[in-house]
Design a protein around this nucleic acid. Sequence first.
DNA 1: CACATTCTGGAACGACTGTTCCATAAAATT
DNA 2: AATTTTATGGAACAGTCGTTCCAGAATGTG
Lengths: 191, 191
Amino acid sequence: MGRYKEFDKEAVLHKAMLVFWKKGYEAASIPDLLEAMDLSRSSLYETFGDKQTLYIEAINWYKKWKQAKRDILVNATSAKSGIRQYFEIHIDSALDGESPKGCLITNAAVGMDSPDEQLNALIRERFDELEKSFYELLRKGQETGEIMPEKDIKTLSYLLSNLNHSINIVAKVKGDRSKMQQMIDMVMELI
Amino acid sequence: MGRYKEFDKEAVLHKAMLVFWKKGYEAASIPDLLEAMDLSRSSLYETFGDKQTLYIEAINWYKKWKQAKRDILVNATSAKSGIRQYFEIHIDSALDGESPKGCLITNAAVGMDSPDEQLNALIRERFDELEKSFYELLRKGQETGEIMPEKDIKTLSYLLSNLNHSINIVAKVKGDRSKMQQMIDMVMELI
DNA sequence: CACATTCTGGAACGACTGTTCCATAAAATT
DNA sequence: AATTTTATGGAACAGTCGTTCCAGAATGTG
């Protein structure tokens, strides 16, 4: 047997993800990625194939990485407090100065011209998952009597997922935490 | 005197705008632009300077071009019906198959890495204008008694502008008109 | 018609794009 | 230690990027 890989694949994938996140697909050049990943050209191509494949893998990694945030919705006992908590963390991370602003998947959605089918599916899937998470939590809320049965929770979950998207956008140009929070407060009145 | 320009500057600018809109700044190459504008390299550089400047001009042109839609908000007599009409048209144009999907300025906002100051200002300005238009209409509604005085119209206008943004996003990956409309209906309950 | 001015097409530029290839270094097995 | 397998670094690739430049065609004025 020959030698093993000297780098941790997930670690370098994480660094690649950060570059894509910050710069976008087109603007993230191979030299940019190589420098961040601290890899040689050959190792990158040997390990990940090509730029497009690396991008897909980076997005999948991002999904896994952000899964924790969605788990709040899945595991919450109260619908209202779960949603509140979700948005609190979401707003925090959207305005956090350390990570790139916004959301990698939202960026990917907006940035795609005539999209690769795989990428398109990935984005749609993610959007649907979020909406579904909201829906499931609201449905449980209706079952336990926390939420009135006549509420249109299907539209509500759509509204909430849309607010999630828009927070990702406005965070990129001007982040005003209190405005975002007040907006969530207002929407909570509908639940 | 020598000969005059043979092309209509605004007409070719419009075509350039469509290319930027569809492909995004990075992916829109000079050959792409030239073909759409039906211009020679020299004419483009002589008339518009460089790609970045052309992009800025294209965005400004887009603003002018889309002004008509915002005028609905400015000229509406009833706040509620004005907002409804605005979103009706907005949803229509977001899902319209002829124009590129989404919004050029939203795309620009999401696509920018370390943005040119001029571009950043342009985007912020546009976001603020929209929010302000909603606010003004809501304020008039409060004056005329159409909207209850205790309503927090500042947050409301922020919420509405955010929905505008998110519609631009979701339209790029999957457009469901009825879901969007129902969402607006739901938010109208808050007004 | 001659002159002045401006636009146009195309060649050329260096820099950068993503990708491939290979000789060499490194590690694991026998 | 010899051998086999694999990763590595760097050179090189063709293609495209945005941009510049210039000779010549086209249109205006006198």
